[in-house]
Every structure is written in C-alpha cells, then in structure tokens.
Design a protein around this nucleic acid. Structure first.
Length: 432
RNA sequence: GGUGGGAUGGCAGAGUGGUUGAAUGCACCGGUCUUGAAAACCGGCAUAGGUUAAUAGCCUAUCUAGGGUUCGAAUCCCUAUCCCACCGCCA
C-alpha cells in the first residue's frame, strides 16, 4: 500500500511513477473520494465530540446528585438524538473510507528511479553474466529425457495421481533434489548469517493481503475448500513476511531462510512450459528474507541477490542477472533482479530466482514497524526477499548442465557431501 | 469432539457502567546526586487517523476482532478467533 499522505501531496509525481509501471492511476477518482472523506470525517468527528461532551456532563450531574430524575430523563432523550446523528455521520464516513482503502489496496508499489523503462520483459536489462556456457560434443538432452534415463523422473504417473504440472522424483534424483535444498539452507545459514525458519504452508487471507497477493491476484492461488479463508502458500514469502504483522520490533535487521513447497495455480499460463518441471503447480523453494531499516534496504537487496548468486557460483551453473523493467515488475516490488540460469536444452537463460525490494509497501499493509530506540516514533520497516533458489529449477539446471554423453549426470562437487559421496547418477537399466 | 478458564500498553498486572487512554511495578528515556557507575530521588514514556508549517496544540478512534445494549462500555450481552487446563480421539 502506498502512503496516502504521499499520494495526496505528490499526486502528479505518483501518477507518473505509476505510469512507469504501466499502471494508470485514476487520480481524479482518488481526489474526489478523498475530498468527500475529508468533509465526512470532520463532520463525524465533531458529532462524536459533541456526544462525548454531552455524556460526560450527564455523568457529572448524576454524580453530584444535583438534578431531578425527570430532568435527567430529558437529558437522556436529547442524548439519543445526538447519538443518532453521530452514528449516521460515522456510517457515511466508513463507506467512503472503505472505498478509498479499496482503491488504494489495488495500486502497485512505486518503482525505484533506477528501474529501466519498458512495458514487458523485452525491455529488461542484463546486468552481468557469470560462468562458461558449456560446449557439448553431442546434442544435449533436456531434463525430462535425462530424468527418465536415470530412472528418476516420472511425469506421467504424476498426471495420473493428480493431474498436469506435477512431477514424481525417486531414487538418486529425489536424493539430489533433497541435497540441493539442504545445501542451500546450510550455505545461507553458515555463510550468510540467515536464521532457518519453518512455517505453515497454509495461510489466511490477511497474510496474503499483507504481501500484496490479495485482493488482486486470487487467481494465482490455490484456495482451500474450508469455511475459513485458507490458501496454500505460493511462496514462503507470505508466511515469513507476515511473521511480524501488527508488531513493533526493535532489533533489525532480521534475516531468515525458509525451505517450503510452493503452490501456484498457474492460471493464465496454459501452453507455456508444458513439458517437464519448469512450471509446476507444486515446487520447492528456498527463500531468503530480510527485514531492515528503510535506509538500508537498497544495500540489503544487493546483499541478498549476491547470497542467491553464490549458490549458482558454488554449483558452477552459468547465469545472468537481469534488472526488470517497470512494466515487468511485480505488484509489490520497487525493484527486482531476476537471476536466470543457463538451460542447454533450451539454449537460453531461464529464471531461477527473483530478488526484490518492497520498500515499505508490504510493511504498510502489514503494519510492521520498528523502533530504533525507546521513545522514538515507530517507523515502517522495509522488506526484501528473493529465491535462494527455486529447488526444482535448480535440479533441472544441474541435470542439463552436468549431463554426460551417455545420459548420466555428474554430481556437482558441493552436493556430494549431501549425497553420501555419490559422484555420478548412472543410467538406469530398468527405467523408472 | 466435549467441558471449563482466559485475552488489558514493550513486559508483568489492577480495574465489573460515568472526566479511565487506562492504577501499580519492571523496562526504557531525561534530570538531580556522584570523580565515574550503581542506588536513591524528580520528571517523562501507547498507537493510528484528522486538522496543522509542525513529530506544538486541539479533535476522533483503539483495553483480541466484529456486532449489540446504554445519554455514557475495558467493564453488560451475542458471535468469531486465538491461548490455557482437563477428558476423548489421534500421527
């Protein structure tokens, strides 16, 4: 949520910055509702003040036993009139305030000035590339064939059990998948100073509002068939960011790393990435999350992005860092770096991590504040998060980049300790 | 699933209809004292919104949340959520 005070006082600036994000903000509608709100609020509050003063006066009269009973009865009658007037004024105010809140809750975060212009991913800017793109002496297979070859990946049976966009892994492939998440967690905890945290995979609607997934993006979510407003998490960002919802915290920064499955309905992506494990309804992700003081959030974004990149360094997977342009930025983000890993079978880079600074946008929705020292006014914090990394896609990248001529897969050095010393996943004679 | 008991400011904990936004203690901040510190003493210390140049005043709201009763609600009534205890069931 944007700061309504800033929207009011810098309306033109806000409109043009939202334009960069390719969002048309209806400033006239905003102004008309806000002006109505102002008038109604002044009216409602003065009615309320009147009522309060009147009641206080009755109280003191009764206390001093200065009045006749009948007199008090008359006073009460008039009190009822005041009460009605106050209630009516309040009702009108509430309607208008709700309208204003609804309007504002669907407005995206303002992009940072460093964000490149552009309407879609074609305007994203590559900032750097790392690693050597492998030169295969044979035609590289894709991860679906490789996975089938080593007898560890089964898409068809997953479709039977559940439906499309699910996968089954077994044997050494399942082991590698687990090893990847263990490796990521351990690295972020021991090398980068994150605290490991385990959270619910089901969240309520308020948490999703806090991160900005609701009210606008309900279609992307799996909702439980329950009287309560429960949803499967689309990312650990939702439960972890909401840790301190409605709280005032006093020690910053806080850094968490969290491994969870993620559930996305992928509505609107029919026909895209239908083959294999690239786009699933369920996937594992190791998420990095920082809660920081406002002045430190830009440094924190660089740090966190670097933390995610170090996983790719250690796995020796070629990747590049992309700055998303205004039109490609997520709803809550002020700036986002995507990390894209090289996939030989597609001869291109594919997203494996997305690291964003949300500035105070989520904090305002969640009412998460901090107090630097006792006595100071609480201030909204900034939130930063990013994948470190998407486990399923990392597995895909390892399979494809480490494949051998015969279809076997070398195990990256750093994973071997997590895989009982295994150095190579061999072809399976029996298939799956 | 059943039966009871709870939810008050950063924490602990008073408060059952009338100047209570809320006693008291702890924590915290400022001061006095001290060579310095501690102790003691004095003072301050909730959040949000509105108005405003103002993080000054003033007004409004908030004692888990949402409704209700009343001229007036932390206090009475209803509902929800969460926590605790015991019973039942269970990985």
């Amino acid at each position: 949520m944007l700061d309504i005070k800033e929207v009011r006082s810098n309306l033109n600036d806000v409109v043009s910055r939202l334009n960069k994000k390719h969002y048309k903000f209806d400033s006239e509608l905003f102004l008309s509702i806000d002006q109505r709100r102002k008038a109604l609020q002044i009216e409602a509050e003065s009615r309320q003040a009147e009522r309060n003063a009147y009641s206080k006066n009755i109280g003191s009269l009764i206390h001093q036993a200065r009045s006749e009973k009948s007199e008090v009865e008359n006073l009460k009658k008039h009190g009822e009139v005041l009460k009605k007037a106050a209630q009516e004024a309040e009702e009108l105010l509430e309607q208008t305030q709700t309208q204003l809140e609804q309007l504002l809750s669907e407005v995206p975060n303002l992009p940072d000035s460093s964000v490149p212009d552009g309407s879609d991913e074609s305007s994203n800017i590559e900032l750097m590339q790392w690693g050597n793109i492998p030169n295969f002496t044979f035609t590289p297979r894709d991860h679906v064939d490789l996975g089938a070859g080593v007898g560890g990946l089964d898409i068809d049976r997953a479709a039977k059990i559940t439906g499309s966009r699910f996968a089954i892994m077994r044997g050494n492939l399942a082991l590698m998948h687990r090893a990847l998440s263990q490796f990521m967690l351990t690295t972020h905890v021991l090398d980068h100073g994150y605290e490991e945290i385990h959270v619910p995979y089901i969240v309520n609607d308020q948490s999703l509002f806090g991160t900005g997934n609701l009210p606008k993006f309900a279609d992307d979510l799996f909702k439980l068939n329950d009287e309560r407003e429960f949803y499967l998490i689309p990312t650990a960002e939702v439960p972890v960011t909401n840790l301190f919802r409605n709280e005032i915290i006093d020690d910053l920064p806080k850094k968490f790393v969290c491994h969870t499955p993620c559930f996305r309905s992928e509505a609107g992506s029919y026909g895209r990435d239908t083959r294999g494990m690239i786009r699933q309804h369920q996937f594992d992700k190791v998420e990095l999350m920082q809660f920081v003081e406002p002045v430190k959030s830009w440094d924190a974004l660089e740090e966190l992005t670097g933390n995610a990149e170090s996983i790719l360094h250690k796995l020796e997977l070629p990747f590049r860092r992309i700055a998303l342009c205004g039109g490609d930025l997520g709803f809550s983000s002020a700036k986002t770096y995507d990390l894209e890993v090289w996939l030989p079978s597609q001869n291109t880079f594919r997203e494996i991590s997305s690291c964003s600074n949300f500035t105070d946008f989520q904090a305002r929705r969640m009412k998460t504040r901090y107090r630097s020292k006792s006595g100071d006014r609480p201030e909204l914090i900034h939130t930063i998060n990013g994948s470190g990394l998407a486990v399923g896609r990392t597995l895909v990248a390892v399979l494809e980049n480490y494949q051998q001529n015969d279809g076997s897969i070398l195990v990256p050095d750093v994973l071997r300790p997590y895989m009982n010393g295994l150095t190579k996943i061999e072809l399976s004679k029996n298939g799956f």
